[in-house]
Design a protein around this nucleic acid. Sequence first.
DNA 1: TCACGGGCTGACACCGGTGTCAAGTGGTTT
DNA 2: AAACCACTTGACACCGGTGTCAGCCCGTGA
Lengths: 343, 343
Amino acid sequence: MKKVTINDVAKHAGVSKKTISRVLNNELNVSPDTKVKVQNAFDALGYRPNQQARALASNQSFLIGLVYANLYNSFVSKIQSGALERCKADGYNLIIYPEDHESDYLLTNLERGLISANLDGIILTPPFSDMKPLLDFLTTKRIPTIRIGGDVQITTTPSVYSNDAEASYEMCRYLVSLGHTNIAIIMGHPDHAASHERLLGYQRAMEEAGLPIQDDYIQQGYFSFESGENCARKLLSLNNRPTAIFASNDYMAAGIVKVATQKNLSIPNDLTVTGFDNAPASRYIWPSLTTIKQPITEMADEAVRMLIRGIRNKPLENRTITFKDELIVRESSAPAPKINFIT
Amino acid sequence: MKKVTINDVAKHAGVSKKTISRVLNNELNVSPDTKVKVQNAFDALGYRPNQQARALASNQSFLIGLVYANLYNSFVSKIQSGALERCKADGYNLIIYPEDHESDYLLTNLERGLISANLDGIILTPPFSDMKPLLDFLTTKRIPTIRIGGDVQITTTPSVYSNDAEASYEMCRYLVSLGHTNIAIIMGHPDHAASHERLLGYQRAMEEAGLPIQDDYIQQGYFSFESGENCARKLLSLNNRPTAIFASNDYMAAGIVKVATQKNLSIPNDLTVTGFDNAPASRYIWPSLTTIKQPITEMADEAVRMLIRGIRNKPLENRTITFKDELIVRESSAPAPKINFIT
DNA sequence: TCACGGGCTGACACCGGTGTCAAGTGGTTT
DNA sequence: AAACCACTTGACACCGGTGTCAGCCCGTGA
């Protein structure tokens, strides 16, 4: 029941272990005859190369790291599964690093983990995508890194991102097209570049539509359900209550729905609520949420492709790939209530 | 910028590399003086041992595999983060294997992945926890394995599980205590042992309460939101409509809430809906769901502890550890509507 | 005929650690 | 003083692969 090693295969096939290695790695200049012999030996013995030995000898680990803040975020789980699929397909494994982005020991922790695992590359998700010290650290360590969904202003490290400002702009144009004029926004966590992008899109749409932006229509949320509830309570008790609230993610939108329902406001008749992210919950709650769908899986796939390409023929090309988000209209949005026009 | 190896440290500290290795592994019989010298060398050079080299030499990979079916399931994400935390704390990394449990190539796929990664141990989540061929395969390969939340009848492999039958029993007793007599259940996916456990608890509680169990009050769901909707539509169009529906997970419960709301039934006044799992969505939807909370993180933690203990001083002890679930009452449950008593 | 070059193969060192075993040191027992 | 033992340390082989380089074979052109 001992493990089958390259030596066993070599003996069985009657060639040197170097030749086995050649076949294993699809190297050139192996005669078809030997190749067949070796393949047969593989099958006969059920040989599986030892990853760690390969790693040690070739100075590659076939390991990619994914750094994220919180798995319960649907964005992150989709990134994880998208990245994972690509990794496995290309013979890599994914090692995940949930980290606290506010911890003082972040760099120390990551260093210990990353260095000893000998990662071939790293994927950074928000808010890590924008942490300068971390990016600098990875650069000096020369670890190929790709950022997902971060600040496009940062151009030192390649990134894959979707145009949130654009999507947010479209969402607000959609709300305007429904006749809404009192449109509020609940921002996301300030540490995430996406939060600002989403605000930007809102501001642009409002200006273009010639609608005034009231200060108290812009609330600071933190991407959590509870922060959505809190902001909703504030917004819905304003004298000039908004007829539409655009939350920067779906969890906060769910918070709005809860508060509004408790206040006996009917959604979408009395109040339009929209979200962002197309989280599973956006379909589960009632009414289902009008939201923005980011091509997350595709982004993760592309990120891993770029990373692996960079690992194979270094250096990693330093570009930013932009994906387009999509507006998904469901049941939480409707034309502005008439009352508004009467008053 | 070359990597610091054990040789560099040995030279710097003026001892042999074997001694460095001793300090690294906290072996006995290293004099305090040398230990200090070596520690200083570690700090001075910023040495991080190479995992792959350790793995190769010591025939341990410090890698644990987690096999699951679907990350979007909140159960699985909680398992993942619980397991991960324990792994990192003990110096292990977690490698994740999302697999299709209905695929014909399951074993082949897993074999390729598992064997070449040299996993030290494996964690199986439902429905893999109950797949005999898989368990047999892992047994013959002598890979330490632990099952989470599977069928307790299977005693060939150790497991960690929470008593779903018991929890389901308590949930139904709670519903009975609210005065409900027409209680329906939506079952989970038949491939999951938990689905049967949950049905069992329901049946026991109904019998004990002297309530008849009608065939059409038992609906077959599949753990998905949509299956919840479908079953709800059937249940709510019955002549003797139930006043309480117990769904075997929260996603299906959310589906019931949607269908009921569309039919203008008010929850919980006209209809009580309860779920299972305490998924994040159970708090996000309105009304928030009365549900069952499993101590998932603790279970995952314990599973990893057992596994690592088994890896260190083999063999892995073959026992089943049982955790207790907890009933969480929220806003989706209320006393049975009076009408019921009048008719 | 000989020099040359490309295709194919194997010997051997090496990657960075750990396991085994032998040896040196100093204290205790007889 | 000799024998013994526990503690500490290092030399060296080894884990299972890959990189380097030399050598062989055979076809081609001079």
